Simulated scan of single mutants.
Amino acid sequence: MSELRNHAPAPAAPVRDRSESRFPGGPVADPAGSHHERRIRSFQPRRSRVTTGQGDALTRLWPRWGFEIDGKSVLDLEEIFDGLPVVLEIGFGMGEATARMGEADPGTGILAVDVHTPGQGNLLGLAERNGLSNIRVANGDAIILLREMLAPAALDGMRVYFPDPWPKKRHHKRRLIQPEFLTLAAKSLKPGGVLHCATDWEPYAEQMLEVLSAHPDFENTQEDGGYAPRPDFRPLTRFEGQGLDKGHIVHDLLFRRTTATATATTAAQGSAPLTG
Rank of each mutant, 00 (worst) to 15 (best):
G26W: 01
P152G: 08
E20R: 11
I177L: 04
L123N: 01
T263Q: 10
D17H: 15
E219R: 06
D200C: 00
A57S: 06
T261L: 14
A262H: 13
W65F: 12
D56A: 11
R170H: 11
L132M: 11
S133A: 14
E96Y: 10
A97Y: 05
G157T: 00
H171F: 09
R18I: 14
F162T: 05
S48N: 09
G83I: 01
R159Q: 03
T266Q: 08
L132E: 07
P9C: 15
G121S: 09
A153I: 03
G91N: 00
L88S: 03
F92R: 00
A104M: 10
Q269W: 12
T265K: 09
Q120A: 11
L77C: 02
N130V: 13
L195P: 01
P165F: 09
Q120C: 10
A104N: 07
E37M: 08
G66D: 09
M208I: 09
A260G: 14
L182T: 01
G140D: 06
L132G: 05
T263M: 15
E89C: 02
F239Y: 11
G193H: 01
I110P: 01
P27D: 08
M158V: 03
Y204R: 06
E223M: 11
E210A: 12
P45V: 01
A142H: 01
P152L: 10
L274I: 13
Y204I: 04
R38V: 08
E78W: 05
G140N: 08
G157F: 00
P216N: 07
D76M: 05
A272C: 13
E3L: 13
G95P: 03
A29F: 06
E3N: 15
S21T: 05
D105E: 04
D30A: 06
A57N: 04
W201I: 02
H215Y: 08
Q222A: 13
V113G: 02
Y204E: 03
N130D: 15
D105Q: 00
E223K: 14
I69N: 03
P203V: 04
H172D: 11
D200E: 02
I249D: 07
Q54G: 09
R136C: 03
A142S: 07
S2M: 15
